[in-house]
């Protein structure tokens, strides 16, 4: 009974934090750029680059370009879920509230990832505009399921990045250089088979890679076994990143409560 009450409280905190983040993000020019403008520009470029406009190519570009928006906002907005509080001077208060810090950050990143899914809607609509007809998703059921798993997979990844950026400001300064490497390693707009073999393990540890593989497979009518495998890998990465997140947040709270150095830049 006590656990159920606690779960309800956590859910409420997640929803409230998500709502606050959504409201903030709606007026943020960079968020608008990341989830609408940039993916649409990349999609437009890819449409014009297309050698022959087969339906599989179009849906591949729609999904891949949408995923670039998802990653860009996860990196720049989700990554600053904690450091943003430090800049606005609210981190100390957030750490001192009875609601656990990681629950608040889950709410914030969940809002960010859900909002970023509109990148895919934007590129889908653009494809309809450019080609005069909306592209077809070959396995809509599997696509919906993969999309459902993509959300926690990205949230779990953001939950690693956000505390890392706070604990290591030097890593955060490399943020601008991290956007395209993940586009490349995750195979958003080309298969990772085009990359040298030594980069493959790097792709495997990225949840966006498994999300892209599952979504590309489902949208282009790929093998169901491969889609299932990719979704299983997403679940595994959620578990592993969840455990890592717990350690990182313990470190943050230690810095805040014992060392009192959390708000130092």
């Amino acid at each position: 009974m006590k656990r159920l009450t606690q779960l309800r409280r956590h859910l409420r905190v997640i929803l409230v934090a998500a709502e606050m983040s959504l409201r903030n993000n709606l007026t943020d020019g960079f968020v608008i750029f990341g989830i609408v403008i940039q993916p649409m520009i990349i999609a437009l470029m890819a449409f014009w680059m297309l050698r022959d406009q087969g339906p599989d190519d179009i849906i591949y570009i729609v999904v891949g370009s949408g995923m670039t928006g998802l990653w860009t906002t996860t990196l720049f907005i989700g990554g600053q879920a904690i450091s943003g509080e430090r800049w606005t001077g609210t981190l100390e208060m957030l750490v001192a509230t009875p609601a656990p810090l990681h629950i608040v950050v889950i709410g914030k990143t969940l809002a960010n990832v859900l909002q970023s899914l509109s990148a895919m809607v934007a590129t889908y609509a653009l494809a309809g505009l450019v080609f005069g007809a909306l592209p077809t998703i070959a396995r809509p059921g599997w696509f919906a399921l993969a999309l459902l798993l993509t959300v926690p997979a990205y949230v779990s990844f953001a939950l690693i990045i956000a505390p890392l950026f706070v604990l290591n400001p030097e890593v955060r300064r490399l943020q601008n250089g991290l956007e395209f490497p993940v586009y490349i390693l995750s195979g958003f707009l080309f298969p990772i088979a085009l990359l040298p073999g030594w980069t493959t393990p790097l792709s495997y540890i990225l949840p966006p890679y498994w999300a892209a593989r599952a979504l590309h497979g489902a949208s282009s009518g790929g093998d169901v076994a491969d889609i299932l495998f990719s979704m299983a890998m997403m679940m595994l990465s959620i578990l592993i990143y969840g455990l890592l997140t717990a350690r990182l947040f313990r470190r943050i709270l230690y810095k805040a409560r014992v060392e009192a150095t959390l708000v130092r830049q």
């Binding site: 890819a46 570009i61 601008n176 956007e179 395209f180 707009l189 085009l194």
Partner: peptide, 16 residues
């Protein structure tokens, strides 16, 4: 940064 967007567009160009 530029090296990564160069790689990205080279590979995207090769595939797309």
């Amino acid at each position: 940064g530029p090296v990564f967007y160069m790689i990205f567009f080279v590979l995207m160009g090769a595939y797309v």
